[in-house]
Design a binder for these strands. Structure first.
Lengths: 145, 145
DNA sequence: CATCAATTGCAACACTGTTGCAAAACAAAC
DNA sequence: GTTTGTTTTGCAACAGTGTTGCAATTGATG
């Protein structure tokens, strides 16, 4: 655990983020799971330790520094997923900016699928497409086995 | 306008919805535009005439009856689009349940693109995909011309 | 007209997210 | 170690979205 935390501190320092307790603990949470976390997931896991607002600010900052990205799922819940470790189905080096998000209908978790390609799609004449976001729903690896 | 309203009443009756004032006015709004509307869009357009809650309940009911569908855009705002008339880039008969949503970065409007196919995508082994949602971002027909 | 069900408006609440400000923690210099 | 100035945190307050319960109104039907 101490080793892990040293790694987390190193990641924070690499992004010029002062490694405070809340930052270490939140980043540790992301590195521990392989799916996206909502603000309330994080708030409950760190129950009573930190203020709601500080968590929001930390998440926003992690987003700006490129450590995590925001996902709005089809029910309107905002979640956040880390780019390295379990946050993606490939490792940090192969993380793709634009990837498919998979939401499991059973456990509710959202997984980033960076190992598959986002297809090309043509839009009707007159429309100018800049980004294409894909989100799949179904049953995840864990729930289907 | 009177003619239009008769058509709207006919649509409501066809779905066994009692045609009250608020229902006629909301459905009329959807038939007047070719993009999705948020609750607050509707509330503002009908300013002071109806209660917030009644609008929410009407939208939920229209959704259950299949007159409109819900869209959560990537900023977390919930919008609703009708299936017939301007709500889709094809007419009611060619409306597809699963279609691409296009959000214009300039005007902010969301358009349903029912005329183009949703591609097939393979997910990694173990995942069982049931639905694939596509949402594009860019510049719409109106803003790019 | 009387009755019963459906619809609406209102009050209240929970949840998410944001902002301003004061207190605390921290780093750097002396 | 103490002082100084910056960063971070917690707290209070607020705005927006969406939901629920209940009472009053409306509307359909006999």
């Amino acid at each position: 655990m101490a080793e892990e935390f040293n790694e987390i501190i190193a990641v924070l320092k690499a992004q010029h983020i002062r490694p405070t307790k809340i930052r270490e603990e939140i980043l540790n949470l992301f590195f521990d799971v392989n799916h996206a976390l909502s603000h309330s997931d994080i708030f409950l896991k760190l129950k009573n330790k930190f203020d709601r607002v500080t968590i929001y600010r930390t998440l926003e900052m992690f987003g700006n520094k490129g450590l995590i990205h925001k996902i709005v799922d089809n029910s309107g819940v905002t979640k956040y997923a880390s780019h390295g470790h379990g946050g993606c189905d490939v490792n940090f080096k192969h993380h793709k900016t634009n990837h498919i998000h998979f939401k499991c209908k059973q456990c509710g978790n959202i997984y980033c699928l960076c190992s598959i390609e986002v297809p090309k799609v043509d839009v009707p004449a007159g429309y100018e497409m800049q980004v294409l976001n894909l989100s799949a729903e179904g049953i995840c690896k864990i729930c289907s086995s």
